[in-house]
Write a protein that binds this DNA or RNA. Sequence first.
RNA 1: GGAGAGGUGACGGAGCGGUUGAACGUGCCGGUCUCGAAAACCGGAAUACGCGCAAGCGUAUCGUGGGUUCGAAUCCCACCCUCUCCGCCA
Length: 457
Amino acid sequence: MVPADRPRPRRQNQGKDEGIARSRRSRQKEMIDIQLLRTDIDAVAKRLATRGYTLDVAGFKALEEARRRIQTATEQLQAERNAVAREVGQAKAKKDEARAAALMRQGAEFGEKLKSMEAENTAVQEKLRQFVSLIPNLLHESVQIGSRPEDAVESRRWGEPRKFDFQPKDHVDIGAGLAGMDFDTAAKIAGARFVVLKGAVARLHRALAQFMLDVHTAEHGYTEVYTPYMVSGECADGVTSLAKFKGDLFKVEDRDLYLIPTSEYSVTNFVRDEIVPLEKLPLKFVCHSPCFRSEAGAAGKDTRGMIRNHQFDKVELVHVVHPAKSYEAHEQLTGHAEAILRKLGLPYRVVTLCTGDTGFSSAKTYDIEVWLPGQNAYREISSCSNFEAFQARRMQARFRNEKGKPELVHTLNGSGLAVGRTLIAIMENYQRADGGVDVPSVLLPYMGPLKAIVPPR
RNA sequence: GGAGAGGUGACGGAGCGGUUGAACGUGCCGGUCUCGAAAACCGGAAUACGCGCAAGCGUAUCGUGGGUUCGAAUCCCACCCUCUCCGCCA
């Protein structure tokens, strides 16, 4: 999957119970570069403030000071212990049993003291790690400072919203008219925020996913992948802060497994603990999968229809790139998502999220918003982010650079596109006065004989 | 689910509990030789963290976690993963 000549994958331990596995490696990981905090914490605090995040500078300094003290002391004691142990070996080699016995007695004295110091050291390191792992990524300097979604900066629009000579309906009414969208049955079997699709509408939904995969693989150079729909807690923590966003995910009972809220979770982790050869970069994957989200904080929001469901399909684009190329890749990836909308003839606009609205792991995010006549508004259909080295640092995803040294990669991803919302956009934008929906020409090859979806008579 | 085998560096593969960060081989980088190349020979090369202006020193890392011990890749326990056989199953 990753490089063909990759080393045999190292199996990481899986913490049995919930939470972040405490492997040595995960103990070291942090989200933003801890060196930056040590050397220039005030500048970091200032940049984080634009997100609305208050960095506890004093708290960090205290923790860091404690860490420095205990780590140095512990390592010193370990060095002494090692020296004594080595001497025992040498004494025994020389058959000097008396000296060996004396040294062994001396070595035994390290026992309890070392044990408690090591424990304290581990505890402080863990505390520090947790502190750092809750800090969001630093934003790219081009990102507009703001706190509300409306502060996003629009960078371009494509297409003209269609003028209707009748009153356009929203997807719920259209879907009902076509007998193709059934929220009642979905509610009966799973509760609110689910949908059952039927007949030609279900087929259109499938056609969209196929179409997107075909375009991205054939025209944009992506490798199609199929992945697990569940990931370990450790992997979830690689792409964002599990501690912080646990509530947004569905967790499998009694297991350290989470349903993916996007295939970014499974795909980006392909490179976890890997050192990718330079010549393999960039890696570009496209993955169609269902996505599961608890929508815990969205009570009362978008309750009508299938705008915001617990389960939806998405075709996801993931890039793993050389750090020098990530902003270039960000533009390309966003363009790939836009290409789908253009081929489908759906009007959209692209906005750059402001500092306060950009996701935890992202340095810069473009949202693509599609025009929905039923809502008379542009609504998000894709979110394209550059995470720089943030996720890579958490995952220990690296490449071998020009000098042969391992260095963190940059990761990016974006929806290309959310399939459910694309379905909605097509139904609303291609609706007819008679309640039918025309099939966009690029989808005709996927729809068999159907040129339009019409209400049953 | 039952029985067995096994997890060591880029790869293959050693490793009586004691200078083993790890033999040996391959591959890789540099050099000698050559008109050039191959071969041969010589040399180099892990990762992370800490302290230090630096040279450098130290600590940790042999699936993961814990235990025994002055000292663990080597012994003990638990877990994870891989492989083979049997059973069950989409």
